[in-house]
Every structure is written in structure tokens, then in C-alpha cells.
């Protein structure tokens, strides 16, 4: 038997509190543990204020944890932050450059700090910044600033890249382009620790992830496993031409009465929603075909990480996020 490859990042029982007003303590991270394997995109997902950024700041050795153990590439970033600077690239949430520094200058300046930097030209091409090399930071678009920020995190040729909320404030096209880029970074052999509060981003990008809420891990796994782990019910929405809707409703109601795979049938306006087991779609289509009923439109209602969050936290995700922003 061979030992499995040691994890790139290993976090055990991390805890971090801050002093609040009048002697109170605010618990930012209560008890967080996870391990990240080589070459994966590992997500830390959770609503604003869940403790995600504090967690990665402790992993990056930028903050002292109260307790817990952290190991990054075999080093302890808490005891010796300098030991991981060469091998861990960090992209922080806020802009971090002088307004008047150009893309090229920033890249070459940061490259000079590392013992074995990446090829600056290659990175500029990879991040689609080669045509903007002479542009000053203040004149870059939001997407370009974000790409430069990622480029700077990669310029030291790191084994691990920590990316914090990297698509916040980007338009949909720029977000998708950034996602493709993160996958390319992973495919080049870099382990990515991705912090995000976007469910869709985590679902699309992460090989594995933890969902954090209130400073603790509430769920861990691959996006598919987490979603499959929910209850086994499925839902299908169908739309028919108005003259056929009543007949279809009758057929489906009959199916629900004696079929094992269909649990409920509900009509709302011109749509009929059918819920049941994993085989519900098959049963519905078969019954309709037998009666020569062809729906105008069929949609399966897919489950997402949002449903996973609701199940584990007992709250809706969106409400929490809005409440945090409002506060």
C-alpha cells in the first residue's frame, strides 16, 4: 500500500476572534478544518461575514490565528510566514497598486521579488494584458484590473494561488472569461484556493469545496456530491398549448394516483409542475406519449449549491447576503 500524496494545504480546527466594542469578542472563525490536494481548485463558499477571508488570511500567514494548525506545502505559515512567500501567490480583494504604475512596470517589479519568477511576457499574453502593458492602473477597466491582480498572484511562479472574490464587480462576460482563466491556471499545475460568495461560481469552478457559515464548515465535498446528497426528489415543469393543458393535467393526475415515481402535480397558470423520484421525467414523458400529448416546453428544475446551503444552514442564502450588505 502506498501513502496518498500529502495535502498541499491542511487546516485543522482554525479559530480566530477579534476584540469587539466594550470588551466583547467577535468570533470570525469558530472551527474550520479542510484539506486541499495538489492541482485542485478548492472553494471556500459562504455568505458575506461567514469567515472566508479571515480563514485564507490565516492560511496565507497574513493574520495570527487564536488556535488550530495550518500547514501549507509542509510549512507552518503561522510560525514562519516568510517560508511560503515564494511558493504561494495571493490575490487580495481590494486594489493594491499605485494609480500611475503601468501594467508592465507592476509585473516586472513584482517578478523581481521572486527567486524563480514566471515569464512576464507569457503571463501578459495568457491574461490578455499584452495590448495594455503601457496603460496606467487607474485607466484599466474593472476586468483588466482583476486580470492584472491575478497575473501578479501568479508572477512568482507559485505552487498555490489564493484568489479572494475574484469576480466581484465584473460583468457576466468578464466573469466567464475569468473562470476559464482559473481553469487554465489549475491545468498548468497550480493548486487554487478560491474564496467566493457566488454559488454559481463555486459550482462551475470548484473541484471540491467547503461551505462556511457563521465561522464553521457546514458542508464539504464536490459540488455534484453535495447536490446529489440532497433528498432524491426531482421536479419537471411542462407547458402545453391552451387546448391541451386540461387533458394533460388529467393524464398526469392519474399518473400521480397510481404511479410510484410521481408524487405531486400542480398547475400554476399555463405551467404544470410535477415532482417525484429521479425517474419522474421518464414516467411523465412515457405517460404523455401514450396519450399522444406533446408538450411545448419541458424544463427540469435543477438543484444547486443554493439548495445545499438552505438544507445545512436552515436559511435562504440570498436573505443572508442582503442582510449583511444592508448592515
Amino acid at each position: 500500500m502506498t501513502d496518498p500524496a500529502p495535502p498541499v494545504i491542511d487546516v485543522r480546527h482554525l479559530r480566530k476572534t477579534y476584540a469587539g466594542p466594550e470588551g466583547t469578542t467577535k468570533v470570525a472563525v469558530d472551527d474550520v478544518s479542510f484539506t486541499v490536494g495538489r492541482g485542485e481548485i478548492f472553494g471556500i463558499l459562504g455568505p458575506n461575514g461567514a469567515g472566508k477571508t479571515t480563514t485564507v488570511e490565516c492560511v496565507a500567514g497574513l493574520r495570527r490565528a487564536d488556535s488550530g494548525e495550518i500547514s501549507v506545502l509542509g510549512h507552518d505559515p503561522q510560525a514562519d510566514p516568510a517560508s511560503i512567500r515564494e511558493s504561494v501567490g495571493v490575490q487580495l480583494q481590494e486594489s493594491a497598486l499605485h494609480d500611475k504604475i503601468t501594467v508592465d512596470e507592476a509585473m516586472r517589479q513584482f517578478a523581481a521579488f521572486y527567486e524563480h519568477p514566471s515569464d512576464v511576457e507569457e503571463l501578459l499574453r495568457l491574461l490578455d494584458l499584452a495590448d495594455h502593458r503601457g496603460v496606467q492602473f487607474a485607466n484599466l477597466s474593472g476586468g483588466q484590473k482583476q486580470r492584472l491582480s491575478i497575473a501578479l498572484a501568479l508572477v512568482g511562479n507559485p505552487q498555490v494561488a489564493i484568489l479572494d472574490e475574484l469576480t466581484t464587480g465584473l460583468d457576466p462576460a468578464a466573469r466567464r472569461a475569468t473562470w476559464d482563466l482559473v481553469e487554465r491556471v489549475r491545468d498548468s499545475g497550480v493548486t487554487v484556493l478560491l474564496v467566493t460568495h457566488f454559488m454559481d461560481e463555486a459550482e462551475r469552478l470548484c473541484d471540491r469545496l467547503v461551505i462556511i457559515d457563521g465561522g464553521t464548515v457546514v458542508a464539504e465535498g464536490t459540488p455534484a456530491d453535495l447536490i446529489d446528497g440532497l433528498d432524491g426528489s426531482r421536479a419537471v415543469r411542462l407547458r402545453f398549448t391552451p387546448d391541451r393543458t386540461d387533458r394533460a393535467l388529467a393524464v398526469l393526475t392519474a399518473l400521480a394516483a397510481d404511479g410510484a415515481d410521481v408524487e405531486s402535480v400542480n398547475r400554476s397558470g399555463s405551467e404544470i409542475e410535477v415532482t417525484g423520484t429521479r425517474k419522474v421525467l421518464f414516467a411523465v414523458v412515457q405517460a404523455l406519449a401514450a396519450d399522444d400529448l406533446v408538450p411545448e416546453d419541458v424544463r427540469t428544475v435543477s438543484r444547486s449549491l443554493e439548495d445545499v446551503f438552505v438544507q445545512f444552514s436552515g436559511r435562504t442564502y440570498q436573505d443572508e447576503t442582503t442582510a449583511e450588505v444592508a448592515a
Partner: peptide, 13 residues
Amino acid sequence: EKGVLRRLATTPM
């Protein structure tokens, strides 16, 4: 204010 000091803290510099 701009996070330049913090950004540098993540590098070997």
C-alpha cells in the same frame, strides 16, 4: 489606504 503595504506583505519583499 490602497492596500499596497498589504499586497507587498504577500510577496517575498
